[in-house]
Computed example of a mutant assay.
Amino acid sequence: MSAAIHPTAFVDPAAKLGDGVVVGAFCYIGADVEVGAGTAFGPHCVVQGPTRIGRDNRFHAQCAIGGDPQDKKFAGERTELVIGDGNSFREFVTVNRGTGSGGGVTRIGDRNWLLAYTHIAHDCQVGNDCVFSNNSTLAGHVVVEDHVIMSGFAGIHQFCRVGAHAFIGMGALVNGDVAPFLMVAQDGYGRPRGINAEGLKRRGFGPERIAAIKRAYRAVFMSGASLEDARAKLEALAADSADVRALLDFIGNGERPLLR
């Protein structure tokens, strides 16, 4: 089935649209844009290239996708945006391409929900099955792993990492790495407030796995130990828990300090 393009939309002849793509009223699809089968664009969306979009994505009204990075160092070099499959982009979402000095690619995985006014800046790397609530924002070079939830008006400082299954509370401003499984709440800047136990239960984590993660959390975030001593404690706990091993591997491998 060929693409369905509204007569008021503009699609550059160099763009490539897969089967069943829908382009709504007053959309603009630029050159060097590839769109996978079944993806749909609501009215007034703008997609600039180089951008690669997978299958079965939904872009609601007024999304701005693949624009130039908001970085003064950007000098027009060729950079890309790569989006996976099955994502939902609500109204006024903005996603920028990468920069030459930052790896050149902004990347979003599969099955993510980006709610209204979410912003994903240049060179960010977003995993799978994440939820970005209204007005949540990633600065440049942020890494967000799988199953992360960002509440409304939350913001992440550039170069930070957010580990898998973390939950960022409403309005929290994060200026350090968030370890996997944590909940972060606003207190000036966001600070850890326990583990995301309810989210882990919903994803099938059993009591033993959650208990091991809680022990690891206490060792790192509640014991008052130095980070070096906490890592030594985690080494012992990781012998019996792949989840603790993931937490240990995350700590100390980023450009920003660990949020404690």
Rank of each mutant, 00 (worst) to 15 (best):
247 L>M: 15
238 A>V: 05
247 L>P: 06
247 L>G: 11
239 A>K: 15
245 R>A: 14
227 L>S: 11
222 M>V: 01
249 D>I: 06
216 A>C: 08
254 G>D: 15
259 L>S: 12
225 A>E: 03
232 A>H: 08
248 L>R: 15
228 E>N: 10
232 A>Y: 11
238 A>T: 02
214 K>R: 13
250 F>S: 01
250 F>A: 03
217 Y>I: 00
257 P>M: 00
239 A>G: 14
225 A>H: 13
245 R>Q: 13
231 R>G: 00
245 R>C: 10
248 L>W: 01
234 L>A: 10
234 L>D: 01
220 V>A: 09
230 A>S: 15
212 A>Y: 06
237 L>D: 10
248 L>C: 12
258 L>M: 01
253 N>R: 05
243 D>A: 05
215 R>Q: 07
242 A>Q: 13
237 L>F: 08
221 F>A: 14
248 L>H: 06
226 S>R: 00
239 A>M: 03
242 A>N: 06
235 E>A: 11
255 E>H: 08
227 L>D: 05
251 I>T: 03
234 L>V: 00
252 G>V: 02
215 R>N: 07
239 A>Y: 07
217 Y>N: 08
217 Y>E: 04
227 L>G: 10
231 R>Y: 07
225 A>L: 14
226 S>P: 10
244 V>Y: 11
234 L>P: 10
223 S>F: 05
254 G>W: 02
243 D>E: 13
243 D>M: 11
238 A>Y: 00
222 M>Y: 01
246 A>T: 12
229 D>C: 00
235 E>R: 15
255 E>S: 14
221 F>C: 14
232 A>M: 13
260 R>Q: 14
217 Y>D: 02
224 G>D: 05
224 G>F: 09
